[in-house]
Structure formats: C-alpha cells, structure tokens
Amino acid sequence: MTQSPPSGARPPSGYAAPSRNGRTEIELIWIEQRLEHWIRFGRIAGERILSRKTRVVIFRPDAIIAFVRWSANDYGTIHSRIDILRAVRSGEPYTTAPFVRPGGELLLSIQGWQKVRSVIEAIDQVEAVGLDPCDIASDHWRHVHNRLSAGEQPRDYTAERHQAWLGRKALGR
C-alpha cells in the first residue's frame, strides 16, 4: 500500500514539481551590449513583462526551445551559450539551467561564441530546408551537440531524414 506524501512535500530533486500551470518559464534579460538573453526558436505560449529589461516567456510541456545567453564587458564577449531543451511535464526528470524554471530535458548545451555560431548555422540550415526547428527530431540536436563537442562538423538535417523520423514517430518508436 502506498502512502501519499505529506501536504506541501516536494518531489525528489531533479524531478519537475507540479507547477500551477505545468509550464516551463524562461527569464529573458536585455541590457544592450552587456547582457542579452533571447529565444532563437520555440513556440511561446505566454509572456509576463517584469520590467523594461526583463520578461518571462512561458512554454507548454514538450515544446522544443533554443535559449541563447550572451554577456560582455568593456573588452568584449565574456560568455556565450546556447541551450536547446524540451520543456518537461510535471513529474518528469529534468536538468536545471540558469533562468529556466523548473528546467528541461537538455538536448544541446554549447558554450563559446564559435560553437554557438555553429549551432545557429545548424538552425539556419534546418530553416533553409523549409522545416521549423521546433518540429524536427530531437535526436538531431543531440547529434549537433556531440559533433561540435568533439570538434567535428554536424551532418545537415534533410527533408529525407525528417520524413524517416516522421515515419518512426508514427510507428511509436
């Protein structure tokens, strides 16, 4: 016989806590030429403006999102990073990421401007084929992460690959 957790109990660490709306929130900050957070792709389900420089965008569970963070000082870029993640459902395991609540399933996480630029080029390549980066096989983003981490060029995502993935998805694999 299982017992229900005491009132106010939290799920184990690393598991998405039930939120009031079951959605993922990402805080975006824009301080021109100093600190810039933006969404490269992702279907935004809602938004809250906190100040002139800060807003929170909201995503539904299973949304695929590319979140870019960049910061600089008087001497140039000091940090650049892109994370591509899947918004988790309540109770699913997740990886925490700065400015992302509660976190997400991390598909790609790259730091350093040269590699970030390579990811943006991979996103542009998917769009050039006529596909929305939100709708392609999430394994492609893992592939891009692994190849760039190893210092290799990722393979292009083609319409043929997309059709093969849609076929596998239809079969439930």
Rank of each mutant, 00 (worst) to 15 (best):
D62S: 14
D62G: 10
D62P: 10
D62V: 08
D62F: 09
A63Y: 10
A63C: 11
A63D: 12
I64W: 00
I64T: 03
I64N: 05
I65S: 04
I65Y: 06
A66W: 08
A66G: 08
A66P: 10
F67G: 06
A72D: 07
A72C: 12
N73T: 06
N73C: 09
G76T: 01
T77Q: 15
I78V: 02
I78A: 09
H79T: 12
S80I: 11
D83Q: 12
D83W: 01
D83A: 11
I84A: 13
I84K: 04
L85F: 02
L85K: 01
L85W: 02
L85C: 05
R86Y: 12
R86P: 07
V88M: 10
V88R: 02
R89Q: 11
R89T: 11
R89I: 03
S90C: 03
G91R: 03
G91V: 02
E92K: 10
E92H: 07
E92T: 13
P93Q: 03
T96F: 15
A97P: 14
P98W: 14
F99E: 14
F99H: 15
V100T: 09
P102S: 03
G103V: 00
G103E: 00
G103K: 00
G103Q: 01
G104H: 07
G104E: 08
G104Y: 11
E105R: 12
E105C: 12
L106Y: 10
L108V: 01
L108C: 02
S109N: 05
I110Y: 00
Q111S: 14
Q111I: 14
W113G: 15
W113T: 13
K115W: 06
K115F: 01
S118A: 12
V119F: 00
I120Q: 14
E121N: 15
A122D: 04
I123H: 02
D124Q: 03
D124L: 10
Q125T: 11
V126M: 03
V126W: 01
V126K: 01
A128D: 04
A128N: 08
V129Y: 10
V129M: 10
D132P: 04
C134R: 12
C134T: 14
D135P: 04
I136L: 02
A137I: 05
A137V: 00
D139T: 15
